[in-house]
Nucleic acid binder design. Structure first.
Length: 922
RNA sequence: AGGCGCGUAGCUCAGUUGGUUAGAGCGCCACGUUGACAUCGUGGAGGUCGUUGGUUCGAUUCCAAUCGCGCCUACCA
């Protein structure tokens, strides 16, 4: 084995072998366990969030597979309609081409081409992460099978009246020329203005003042509204306004939508261009005047001077014209929430169009109940509030998109505008008795990508066919995802799953936190703070990192700033850490739903952990190769053997429990601490006096068995988190535990059981004594500045029978680990030489000062300890003196405090004794 | 406006149903390299657990208020 852990060398070796051996496929007849990967965008790349999520899913998958479950981690990607279409359109634009010039079919061919070309990046990255997904079952939302599922779902929902087509106000992206669902619109506060206009009454008797943030929409006003109980305007209701700049008269209406406290209490109503106004318009049967084209320029419904102007140009013109007419009262600066398309970044326009909608109410009801009844559990559970909040206020879902890339809507129109829905044109004709001569044309639009994603948990398993996979794996076990996607995806999967499968799509939803950068900023391309997981795995130099962060920016002017920040933060680039270290880091940081600041120091620490494990294995192998090893099942004889097995059992129990409740961070910590602080720091050190001493062969053989058994078991425990290094070491170590590794893999070995390593309290108590003995000496050594290698003579004073018995049994460990020259028990009554002291219960461990220790230093050291104990003592004494404490606290708490008190009192007594002895020296 | 979360050592974070002398890693200080590992070892320093009240014999933990930060949802023209 190499002297240091070299991740690149070992990680490349294993993935292909696992895959070729078919280890990723569900096998056996255990309980089914299934995780659906949240499908990433097929043309995208894996970012830190994915890598984190994939680590969690892979750890769970490997864990359950080792536990003997029939485990499937289902991979795949989605087609990301808008995003992908935009990318390809941008590519075309660089060649001076547009989608419209190319035509639908040719364009789609280009998209498929792009998908083929870039579409396997994610797959390669997943492989590098060690993800044990079943590639043989990989799916893509635009696959034949999944497309069938989409059509089937659409037709069934339509047949039940749960999908309808209607002219509604929707969020319109004037750049992409498509409708968007509410969720694809992001609102953010921006600086704007509030314009106040005078609207004259038709009879010329007066005017009202209305305020607006969007002056151009006044050209589409069809009413002015006031609150029905507003005394200021009560006599105006029913009168008319002469709408300026137009030749229209519009009514003044009363509606309690108006807040009389806000502004003037008069509101202009533009039903065709504002969601609230639309509602008001519906209630009052107001006409809808659409004044915009699909580009958000003014159309022929606007007065002639404004036609053809873009909305912002029109705004300036309207304001100027009203000002010229003396109708501009004032302009105030105003902050307002501006809705923008999440893809185009353009301000979306409420726009009246024909769209397809899913009636959400009836689907939401059982989906809410599924969570309320506990059939689906959120982890952490408070996310259910977010879910309920949205589900109780759910709006109908606009599912049609005016795009080409996606599932074409299975609806056909005849020349009279009648619409027919069916799985195919043939079916439509058959169902509706349409003659072959009747011309039919299919709806031009496609479905929202999330519509197909909502079917993912069952479409990937073969639905609508009743496949064995569906039978076996649905409902799936757990969904692992980020909170940002609860509405987009989680809620919709639950609705569709219950609708079409009659059962929930998953039993648990594990919501993890967001990966942020070192400063706690969200990672994003435009901030230039993204990290590619592969750069952490393989390392990268500064120039490559700068290049990666500054190319392909949406806002190229940010490049210099990003470059500067990157050079500052990573002056030497990023070193190679390896996949296992990255995974261990993610797991260690995966505490309950909390966001994660990704810190390079942390991953470095876990790479060091891998190195530690690696070297522990080196030590074990060096000591067992070619040597006699006790047969499996031989009773451990030595204290260290009994102790480490006991500790291992408890660690397994802890890890198993923590994984069971999705606390990968705590599972990780238990493993880290066992490996480093117990196995390496103590057990390996304790094995040295046995193996290197002149002890008997049987004991050595038993120690070798424990060395290998514990390591082999530990590797299996760690494997779900760090698959590569554990496989590599396991292949070398397992044969020494009587296992065959011919063609075997650790990933198909059983997960360790705590019951195989029962607790041994006697051994733990005895070893604790040994440890405290050694630590006492080390402390003196450390604080007295005595060379670590210098052998020390030691006297024991007031050693009781137990101490003497333990000393008799374990002296060799003390000698070795504490680097001692001699240990002598002082007979009762005999005065010890001047010494530095450590306390172990009632016993004093004395290191004679002779030339080694400075009296003043030892006095200071003792005083420091005395101080510390004394503070604790006062605290406990205060408690015990409190009558109420004695009266109310449980007996065991009181007993514990009393014990503590006695212990500390004794300790102080001993310290004082030593101090007195030192004084006597002066 | 409503909802959720966070505030513990210089930094990043644990802290299970109230009872620990409040922990870990990194960083820091001192010493150390014939040894499985310097990607290491040994020892050490470092915290009035955001603030203020309350409940309690006892609060980092429960409750209320408050300050600061973050996120989500919905928004008044």
């Amino acid at each position: 084995m190499d002297k240091t852990y070299q991740p690149a060398a070992i990680e490349r070796r294993w993935y292909d072998r696992w895959e070729q051996a078919g280890h990723f496929s569900a096998a056996g007849d255990g309980a089914p366990y299934c995780i659906m990967i949240p499908p990433p965008n097929v043309t995208g790349t894996l970012h830190m969030g994915h890598a984190f999520q994939d680590t969690i899913m892979d750890a769970l998958t490997r864990y359950h597979r080792m536990r003997g479950d029939r485990t499937l981690w289902q991979p795949g990607t989605d087609h990301a309609g808008i995003a992908t279409q935009m990318v390809v359109e941008r590519q075309l634009a660089t060649q001076g081409l547009s989608r419209l010039e190319l035509g639908r079919e040719a364009f789609l061919a280009r998209v498929w081409e792009w998908k083929e070309q870039s579409g396997n990046t994610i797959q390669q990255q997943l492989r590098r992460m060690g993800s044990s997904v079943d590639w043989s079952r990989e799916r893509f939302t635009m696959d034949e099978g999944l497309s069938q599922a989409v059509i089937e779902a659409f037709v069934r929902l339509h047949d039940e009246g749960l999908i309808y087509r209607g002219k509604r106000l929707v969020n319109w992206d004037p750049v992409l020329h498509t409708a968007l669902s509410d969720l694809e619109v992001l609102s953010a506060e921006e600086d704007g203005h509030m314009w106040h206009f005078r609207y004259p009454l038709a009879d010329g008797s007066a005017h009202v003042v209305v305020a607006t943030t969007r002056p151009e929409t006044m050209l589409g006003d069809t009413a002015v509204a006031v609150h029905p109980e507003d005394p200021r305007y009560a006599d105006l209701v029913g009168k008319s306004i002469r709408l300026p700049l137009t030749d229209r008269e519009i009514p003044i209406i009363a509606d309690d939508y108006v807040d009389p406290e806000f502004g003037t209490g008069c509101v202009k109503i533009t039903p065709a261009h504002d969601f609230n106004d639309y509602e008001v318009g519906t209630r009052h049967a107001l006409p809808l005047i659409n004044i915009f084209t699909i580009d958000a320029a003014l159309n022929e419904n606007a007065p002639a001077p404004y036609r053809g102007l873009g909305r912002y140009a029109a705004r300036e013109r309207v304001v100027a014209d009203l000002d010229a007419a003396g109708l501009l009262e004032r302009i105030d600066p105003h902050k307002l929430m501006v809705p923008r398309g999440d893809r185009s970044g353009e301000v979306v326009e409420p726009y009246l169009t024909d769209q397809w909608f899913v009636r959400a109410g009836p689907l939401a009801k059982p989906a809410i109940e599924a969570v309320e009844s506990g059939r689906i559990r959120f982890i952490p559970e408070n996310w259910d509030k977010t879910y309920y909040e949205w589900m109780h206020n759910i709006q109908d879902w606009c599912i049609s998109r005016q795009l080409w890339w996606g599932h074409r809507i299975p609806a056909w129109y005849d020349d009279d505008g009648n619409v027919f829905v069916g799985r195919t044109e043939a079916e439509v004709r058959a169902r509706h008795g349409l003659a072959a001569e009747t011309a039919l044309r299919q709806d031009e639009d496609v479905l929202d990508t999330w519509f197909s994603s909502a079917l993912w948990p069952f479409s990937t398993l073969g639905w609508p066919a009743a496949t064995p996979e569906l039978q076996t794996f649905y409902p799936t076990s757990v969904l692992v995802t980020g909170f940002d996607i609860i509405f987009f995806w989680v809620a919709r999967m639950i609705m569709m799953g219950i609708k079409f499968m009659g059962d929930v799509p998953f039993r648990e939803v594990y919501i993890h936190g967001l990966i942020r950068d070192q400063e706690g900023q969200k990672m994003s391309k435009s901030k230039g703070n993204v990290l590619d997981p592969l750069d952490l795995i393989d390392g990268t130099d500064l120039e490559s990192l700068v290049a990666k962060r500054t190319t392909g920016l949406m806002q190229p002017h940010l490049a210099p700033k990003i470059e500067e920040a990157t050079r500052k933060q990573f002056p030497d680039g990023i070193p190679e850490f390896g996949t296992d270290a990255l995974r261990f880091t993610f797991a260690a940081l995966a505490s309950n739903g909390r966001d994660i600041r990704f810190d390079l120091n942390r991953i470095e620490g876990y790479r060091n952990f891998c190195n530690k494990l690696w070297n522990a294995a080196r030590y074990v192998l060096l000591n067992v190769e070619g040597a006699e090893i006790a047969a499996a099942g031989t009773e451990p004889s030595s204290l260290p053997d009994r102790w480490i097995r006991s500790r291992l059992g408890k660690t397994i129990a802890e890890v198993t429990m923590q994984i069971g409740q999705y606390r990968l961070d705590l599972a990780t910590r238990a493993l880290y601490e066992f490996t480093w602080n117990e196995y390496c720091d103590w057990y390996l050190e304790l094995s040295k006096p046995i193996l290197q001493g002149a002890g008997d062969a049987a004991e050595k053989a038993a120690t070798r068995a424990t060395l290998t058994t514990v390591l082999e078991t530990l590797l299996r425990c760690l494997h779900p988190l760090v698959p590569f290094i554990t496989e590599e070491i396991w292949q070398r170590v397992a044969p020494f535990t009587g296992r065959t590794t011919d063609g075997a893999s650790i990933m198909r070995q059983p997960y360790p059981e705590a019951t195989d390593f029962p607790g041994d309290e006697d051994a733990e108590r005895e070893l604790d004594w040994v440890q405290r003995f050694v630590l006492g000496i080390r402390q003196i050594r450390g604080e007295m500045d005595i060379a670590p290698g210098k052998p020390l003579p030691v006297f024991l004073q007031d050693a009781n029978a137990n101490d003497q018995a333990l000393l008799g049994k374990h002296e060799r460990y003390l000698m070795e680990l504490a680097r001692l020259e001699t240990i002598a028990v002082l007979p009762a009554g005999e005065d010890p030489p001047p010494s530095a002291t450590a306390l172990l219960g009632t016993m004093k461990i004395l290191v004679p000062m002779a030339g080694l220790i400075d009296v003043a230093a030892e006095r200071a050291r003792l005083n420091k300890n005395r101080e510390r104990v004394s503070t604790g003592l006062q605290r406990v004494a205060g408690k015990l003196a409190n009558e109420k404490f004695r009266a109310n606290a449980p007996a065991e708490v009181i007993a514990k405090e009393e014990q503590k008190f006695a212990g500390m009192e004794q300790e102080i007594g001993q310290i004082d004794e030593q101090l007195a002895r030192l004084d006597a020296l002066d």
